[in-house]
Design a binder for these strands. Sequence first.
RNA 1: UGGGGAAUAGUGUAAUGGCAGCACAAGUGACUCUGAAUCACUUAGUCUAGGUUCGAAUCCUAGUUCCCCAGCCA
Length: 565
Amino acid sequence: MNDKNVNERPESLDFVRQIVADDLKTDKWQGRVATRFPPEPNGYLHIGHAKSICLNFGIAAENPGGTCNLRFDDTNPSKEEQEYVNSIIADVKWLGWDWQDRLFFGSDYFQQMYDWAVQLINQGQAYVCDLNAEQTRQYRGNLTQPGQDSPYRNRSVQENLDLFARMKNGEFPDGSRTLRAKIDMAHPNLNMRDPVMYRILHATHHRTGDIWCIYPMYDWAHGLEDSLEKITHSICTLEFENHRPLYDWFIDQLGIYHPQQIEFARLNLTYTVMSKRKLLSLVQDKHVSGWDDPRMPTISGMRRRGYSPASIRSFCQKISVNKFNSTVDFALLEHCVRDDLNKTSSRVMAVLNPLKVIITNYPEGQSEQLPAVNNPEDESAGTRMVPFGRELFIEQEDFMEEPPKKFFRLAPGREVRLRYAYFITCNEVIKDKQGNVTELLCTYDPATKGGDSPDGRKVKATLHWVSAQHALDVEVRLYDHLFNKENPEQVEQGQDFTANMNPDSLQINNNCKIEPAVKNADPLTRYQFERLGYFCVDKDSTAEKMVFNRTATLKDTWAKVQKQQ
RNA sequence: UGGGGAAUAGUGUAAUGGCAGCACAAGUGACUCUGAAUCACUUAGUCUAGGUUCGAAUCCUAGUUCCCCAGCCA
């Protein structure tokens, strides 16, 4: 017998969710699911972090009773700032996730970490080492050669306890000593060759101030933070695979609660630089206006550009999660943005490159209001009135004096529809001395009010337009990729990555016209400009002049036809 | 050259011994108060070589290629 359901495939889980589901089945964590998103506050969050955020918070949300903590991994005061803490909190919240009362800081655990370090010293598994950074490196060996034991490796517990306390008390200068785990200097995994647990750093921490002058290293701190918060699945990126044995070792030696570390591949996007260090240099070297420059792949940049939280979440869901490196096509992100904005944004008529049209048979001084639909995808968005008058603007590219075969829009002697308004026919073309078209003289058919002809006459094109008398002058900023090449991070050795930058990534158009409906809209309000794309109100808008960012373009079939000719 | 990971259409991913599927991109067409949106259709894939099996993307063996690790960064 043929079962019709044979083609239905079971809903598939990515490998992380599969592990969570399996653990639930075996009751490994007594039914708990506890994840965390643990950024270091040393920069702004970007779309790569969004993948991790949506994974961690997503898993928590999908499982009854699941939790996801927001934890700042702030163990290196020399790179971290309160500004970054604030921006990260704002960005995670904006993306739509809620950590409730579980906002934590690694620095809140410094005393506990210190006590545990003392325990390891007492167990003979940690020692104070007087080697400097250079010497430590030499003693570590390399990929093929085993390391050598530090001459300080066999200090007595008593001496280690004493020296570690004095390190903490600030008796030694930066870099003079470290606390190291005593594991195995010949271990094939370099991370296990007596890794540094604490370094001396006389720096002011953004939260603990000058209380501490020794700071824990990531490998020592991270597992302890996870353990203290009773995390079940500690999800991190692939480069920490080599650190997992150390993560497990510390926790096992201490005999404390033991979460499971799981690694997944970080996100790469075509045309997009994703390294925090490089993004920082784009900001510092003023290649962009700031972390929230709309061309930046930061969450704040994308927000300002007009991307919606839902679109970013949907993107993160579509790219899935895996254990191998890949580069996602930027087009998929844009698809998610368009898909969401198409459903949610109000339509509005705007003209980016105005061409004046005079309706010669429309009475001078007269105007009228015509009803227009706000969002054909959403009836509840209602309608608005659009003013019409004798003088209008249409898009320059919507008129051609000598139209090629497949051009359907306005041309001399041709009739087209103005959306929601009337059919018009072009009778005369006015030019300046250089021969540029400056004005079109047209006539309208009063019987076609609203956009339909009672005699059933058809037109081949409908144009967007604005009334010259009522239109608002606005500035529109058009964006392209900041970088030219598919993989901007991969540049020739020694070459600055900014060599790949696209000089046309920002174009400012000061001469745009838009219907008055948008007047005084709040920053971040998103619109679809008919046929032109999605735009959003920028924070630079003033009472005198509004500024719009182009969020995404719509497909332009006519441009393709032109190219083929 | 040590250790740790990984390999499925152009791109991103499903299929956990049983019909290689989905999405993006690309292409064709329909429809349309925008040539947008929408809808329909099309193109295109299991790294290689052996083996086990009635049957292999999946299991085994060997090879190839790619990524990560020698911070007192995370």
